[in-house]
Design a protein around this nucleic acid. Sequence first.
DNA 1: CTTAAATACTTTAAATCTAAAATGTTGGAC
DNA 2: GTCCAACATTTTAGATTTAAAGTATTTAAG
Lengths: 164, 164
Amino acid sequence: MNDKATGLELNHESRLQIEDHQSIRLWLRLLTCTNMIEQRLRARLREEFATTLPRFDFMAQLDRAPDGLTMGELSQRMMVSGGNVSGIANQLSGEGLIDRSPVPDNRRTLCVTLTDKGRSRFADMAAAHERWVVEMLGDLSQAEHQQIMMHLTKLKRGVAALES
Amino acid sequence: MNDKATGLELNHESRLQIEDHQSIRLWLRLLTCTNMIEQRLRARLREEFATTLPRFDFMAQLDRAPDGLTMGELSQRMMVSGGNVSGIANQLSGEGLIDRSPVPDNRRTLCVTLTDKGRSRFADMAAAHERWVVEMLGDLSQAEHQQIMMHLTKLKRGVAALES
DNA sequence: CTTAAATACTTTAAATCTAAAATGTTGGAC
DNA sequence: GTCCAACATTTTAGATTTAAAGTATTTAAG
């Protein structure tokens, strides 16, 4: 049976291999695009605001959550380790850009918020950041934006749904 | 004139803002997808092969270039600093997975190649790596693959074409 | 109430990564 | 030939990151 089906099996297999390689190529392309954009943003944040991408991300998460976030929520949303978040929080707190206030009914958690200084500092950076991103993604039409978003949404769901 | 056109200007401006936010959202989605995939790959490489993503990437670049690559080429292709490449090369060389041989007509450059041991070690990892990636991107049809690739190619060109 | 597991966070140790300086090499300009 | 800028790489110092261990708190089971 295996021998008889060899022709078809090969076709099938070679098709699969092509699809596999396409997956790898797609992943590498995704990685390249992200790296390119990330490196540009990183360089510009350093040059123009003397800050880093993780610090910017930290503040962006807080800016989007006016009621504040716990350290754990920040860790999840930034997709970095908890220890990392602690370190960045120490810096930003030292510079007076964020507040860490205890939560009444749970002494383990801290609620992190932007200070007024932090909020206004972030506003400047966010405006520039948005300009840079638009500049980089500007070649794509709105229709293309929507298509990629749709596909990446599907991709994201697929990855998130995997076990472990 | 400015006052007269206010209505239209506002429309125009708000449309622009929407597009701007879409660019940001697209960038964040791109980043999230890449991070999710990257973290899974990183964890699996560690669990199953006791190695890291940069080391895997280093070997993958060499596997794709049978004639070998210089340190500078590796740095470019991996999109990391030269110093970083030196460090990883030291590790892999110490484990007998790569060779660094001088180039006859230019004593500044080193030609890096996989050893037989490195090539066979990489083959195992690459097979698993490909399974993992296919597993994660498998929800997308071939047509979708091609569409995203097309869009990311355009995106990549746009970013690469920017000054500086 | 006591204990044990789970949770939220921080600390630690080691690896990674970067920018910048240092080293050695090459290729003209003169 | 001599110098000087450009190049390829390594080294260095410092920042970032992670996984894992540690601390403190909460929850819930017995």
